[in-house]
Amino acid sequence: MKLKMGVDIGGLALKNPVMTASGTFGYGEEYSDYLDLNRLGAVIVKGLSLKPRDGNPPPRIMETASGMLNAVGLQNVGVRAFIDDKLPRLRRIDSAVVANIFGETIEDYANVAEILNDAEGVDALEVNISCPNVKRGGVAFGSDPVLAGEVTRAVKNVSRLPVIVKLTPNVTDITEIARATEAAGADALSLINTITGMSVDIEKKVPHLENVTGGLSGPAIKPVALRMVWEVVNTVSIPVIGVGGIMNARDALEFLIVGAKAVQVGTANFINPGVTVDIIDDMRKYMSEKGINDINNLIGTLEV
């Protein structure tokens, strides 16, 4: 049986629904020794800002129960160095390339989006309005429906590419933000980004992270992510990408059944650099076992 794994995410065609989550996959090249990048549905690169950013001072990470906290603070080479130094290698792979973008002001977001219009090899934008680890921008835009809509509109107005907006779970009602970004023209939504948390060294009585708080990721957050994806797919009509604690194909399939059209694998890449390919292979196995010839026939089949 020929298995169809391709999905369409608001105009972005993926050969399979497995993407790499921004900030966990560098610029792709970090992983080229460990897996065939051509196998992936998409590579989503580390968040790009107008200017290079140093990020937060260390320590930046801490292990927690079934997960980790990070406060990297969007360290990146800047959008222009990305285009000149990183994109040429990424362009050669036969998978979609999604540029995750970030700004401190709405103008920043629009500027980065505009610069990427001329970058051959970028197939879509993911707008990060959900990073909890920066003082300006990030989650400040993502937790206010009006601002979230404004950022989305500003990027949509200038970009020629499909625009995915990445949402934060650190809000009272994620469907409110989802609705606002859909109304502002988002082509798709991805959720969730990390959940804000902290961890304390009881010997020294100091936070484990220099930034005090960080973003929680890993299997600890999967149930929360799944619940929020469920809420959002029942609210909007644009495609939703499920993100949060996916460690294996079973986890990924849960998101698809709930209604996500694709998934992003994040923290799992750190503990197994080849995990995304394993997930794709195991998804195929599941499809042939269950007699599902098109992955789209599985999406949103949750019975409640």
Binding site: G26, E30, G55, E63, V72, F270
Partner: peptide, 12 residues
Amino acid sequence: ERMACGIGACLG
């Protein structure tokens, strides 16, 4: 230093 990935991706 504390590391998550060891291969240059996590920036931890």
